[in-house]
């Protein structure tokens, strides 16, 4: 029984690590490779979760949706919807320094939160959308958990391979050139805004997919399912600690940070209630402090950005 509970917990944690790793990969496209600051990760996540929920759930009174489409359609829909939200924001803000994008993404995440809370006919407001189909959901509880973890890992693996390949392709070289020396890249006639927009949209699509995986795992999505600030910040610390610019680092960071985060939650939940509440905020404080320490003492993260051929060249060039 003890072993059963532990195994269940491990599966649960595995799924969450996989989902957060997808978010961190998405952020790595935006920040690690294009230098774009997205402070509204939770917004794109929520858009993906709700889009897939609307597309795949059964019909219900008082809200649109209930199309009962296959889950895979929901997932592609989630990516598409997140990308569609990212497009105008990127279009407007990417002409400027990334500071403006940071502010605008905080804004868009807030608007998405408002829409989810108030548009009952779309999202069923506070009650959320329930009864979502889950692939292999008919199996035994444990088998179904394991099967879902398998799906998450396959999706993560596909995303990893695609992103990694893209980074090593001319596209990735160009992105790094733009990030490391914008002026030189511009002088070489690169269409910088367009490339950045691509990176921003690709990253947002992965975040949307992460949201969809989350919703189908829980078989439901509600406005309270995630704390936007905490989720966004966790993904950031995952990427920075793991090593921005390094896809393996992003995945490793997701694992390390999520394990620390959820184990510390278990630990503090053992405390008497009045301390447990405070402990939650102390954990938030410490995760903020962790970011400061990483930025100061190990800005390259656990797994630094690999020195790809082109990068080795420019890094030396910069030093001279």
């Amino acid at each position: 029984m003890e072993l059963y509970g532990l195994l269940n917990y491990a599966l649960f944690m595995g799924v969450f690590i996989g989902i957060y790793a997808l978010l961190a990969l998405g952020l790595n496209i935006q920040w690690g490779f294009a230098g774009l600051f997205n402070a509204g990760i939770a917004g794109f996540f929520a858009v993906g979760a709700y889009t897939s929920a609307i597309l795949t759930s059964a019909a219900a009174e008082g809200r649109i949706g209930g199309f009962e489409l296959p889950v895979i359609v929901g997932w592609f829909g989630a990516m598409g919807a997140a990308a569609l939200i990212a497009w105008p924001i990127g279009k407007i803000c990417l002409r400027f320094r990334s500071d403006y994008l940071a502010i605008a993404t905080i804004g868009i995440a807030e608007i998405i939160r408002l829409v989810i809370k108030s548009e009952a006919e779309l999202t069923n407001s506070a009650r959320g959308i329930t009864g979502l189909p889950r692939p292999f959901g008919d199996l035994d509880y444990m088998a179904s958990q394991a099967a879902y973890l398998g799906i998450v890992l396959v999706v993560l693996a596909i995303a990893y391979v695609l992103v990694e390949r893209q980074f090593n392709a001319p596209w990735g070289r160009m992105m790094r050139a733009i990030r490391d020396n914008e002026d030189a890249a511009r002088a070489m006639g690169k269409n910088i805004e367009y490339r950045r927009l691509e990176a921003f949209i690709f990253g947002a699509a992965l975040m949307g997919l992460g949201g969809a995986l989350f919703a189908h795992f829980n078989r439901s999505i509600t406005p309270e399912a995630i704390d936007p600030m905490v989720a966004t910040f966790l993904v950031w610390i995952m990427l920075i600690l793991g090593g921005s610019g390094n896809n393996r680092g992003a995945i490793l960071g997701a694992a390390v940070v999520w394990i620390i985060w959820s184990v510390s939650e278990i630990a503090t939940d053992q405390l008497p209630h009045e301390y447990a509440v405070k402990a939650k905020y102390i954990r938030l404080f410490l995760i903020g402090l962790l970011l400061q320490l990483v930025l100061r003492f190990r800005p390259e993260g656990i797994l630094p950005e690999p020195l790809r051929g082109d990068l080795r060249h420019t890094k030396e060039g910069n030093r001279s």
């Binding site: 940071a102 910040f233 905020y281 102390i282 938030l284 402090l289 970011l291 400061q292 930025l295």
Partner: peptide, 21 residues
């Protein structure tokens, strides 16, 4: 400069956590 923007997002969380505690 964007690194400081990121740091300030962490500071926002930290300051709020202090108030909440």
């Amino acid at each position: 400069k964007i690194v400081t923007v990121m740091a300030s997002l962490g500071i926002a969380l930290m300051v709020r956590a202090v108030v909440q505690v």
